[in-house]
Design a protein around this nucleic acid. Structure first.
Lengths: 217, 217
DNA sequence: CGTAAGCCGTACAGCAGTGTACGACTTATG
DNA sequence: CATAAGTCGTACACTGCTGTACGGCTTACG
């Protein structure tokens, strides 16, 4: 939103902050240490905000081993930083899920998907909380939807093959997937569920919930 | 909890704020208008915080038609107010759920329970968010657990009668109950689910998830 | 090896919220 | 109807956070 006008009035472009926020990629004009700092900030912010969602810019800067002013030179506002961190996490998640084999038997594919997903959700639980505090909900949902696409396509396939139920809408089943995983994450955080037992419980529950209802009774 | 020391150093007791916070009951020394104000504050705070979880004391006071100072004279801090509101909501919920007939066929009882529960959850979604911002998590859980007792006892009964599955722990099934309802509430808020369809989806999902797994592959 | 890009700390301005103090006014209640 | 309980607005002190400005120093990079 605020980069748009900057690009217009700065014909040289890329002087300060255009597109090279992420560590990788070809930001030619940026000095190496600047790029390193941006990475350090993003990483530190991700970890810190996942612990304390209300951490201030001051604290983020300290955690990244960087001055607060430098932090502001890279991210114009708290919201901007939060958005960048959120984007980064979702990209990470997307990369992790891309490796999951979703072919073959749907229940087993679902189990694999759960096994790869739930940890990410658990770790970025509080970060989502932080995002909800100051990011427009539309933006959050947008990021989320992209990650849930894989879930949705798997469910669709299961429905076509009659492995999964078709009496409830696909979008609802996606919601159930998401909700149960989040519920498990909360339980773990509360110390009422161990990390080891979680994936099996989640998978067993989802498979029952997704199975076609038996016509009996 | 935080009134404890006040009672000690004020032998007269009941002068300002001891136990008569709620509208009903026998707070002899309190003037009638004071009691009315406390009620108005609690009601307004509940409604306002359910819309904007970050509403300030100023805004709460205005919504209650009361001066900010008066608000502070009844609730010493924001946290104290929030706790009172939270307690009130849970008490309301408890009262509503007490009317639900939990006897007889477990699936039907579960359906009735869902039908009475989910609206309350949906309406106080954001209030829970507010509570998580400044109430110790232990306190929140304590309130929650009391409300979930009914769910738990119903599930236990279903397990004894082999209507519900016993291969997953009871506490986990309670979590699933809670999570699915919350998920539905979020979907409604996002405009992706209508109020009319919600209860059926929730019930159908939970019944499948709670049903004993069929030994047939 | 010079220069510009980038870093740093400090300092300042602004804002918003929390709690508290005070004095005057209003109203239940006996 | 007198009095104590309660309310009201205004004002103040304090805290913590955001975002910006400035000048000096370090360092990457050609």
């Amino acid at each position: 939103m605020l980069d748009g006008s900057d690009d217009m009035e700065d014909p040289v472009a890329g002087t300060k902050a255009a597109d090279g926020k992420d560590q990788a990629g070809g930001s030619r004009g940026r000095r190496a240490d600047a790029q390193r700092n941006v990475s350090a900030i993003l990483e530190a912010a991700q970890e810190l905000l996942s612990t304390d969602p209300t951490a201030s810019m001051q604290e983020v800067a300290r955690a990244a081993g960087v001055g607060r002013v430098t932090l502001y030179s890279h991210f114009g506002s708290r919201t901007e930083l939060l958005d960048a961190v959120f984007t980064r996490v979702m990209a990470e998640a997307d990369r992790a899920l891309a490796d999951v084999d979703l072919t073959g038997d749907e229940p087993q594919a679902l189990a694999r998907l759960v096994r790869s997903s739930w940890r990410i959700v658990q770790q970025s639980r509080l970060l989502l909380f932080a995002a909800q505090l100051e990011l427009p909900q539309g933006q959050i949902r947008e990021h989320h939807d992209r990650a849930l696409e894989r879930v949705e396509s798997l469910i669709r396939r299961g429905r076509r093959n009659r492995t999964f139920r078709t009496d409830l809408p696909t979008s609802w089943l996606v919601t159930v997937f998401y909700s149960v995983i989040h519920g498990a994450a909360d339980e773990i955080n509360a110390g009422r569920l161990t990390v080891e037992r979680a994936p099996n419980l989640i998978t067993a529950t989802l498979l029952s919930a997704f199975a076609p209802p038996v016509p009996a009774t």
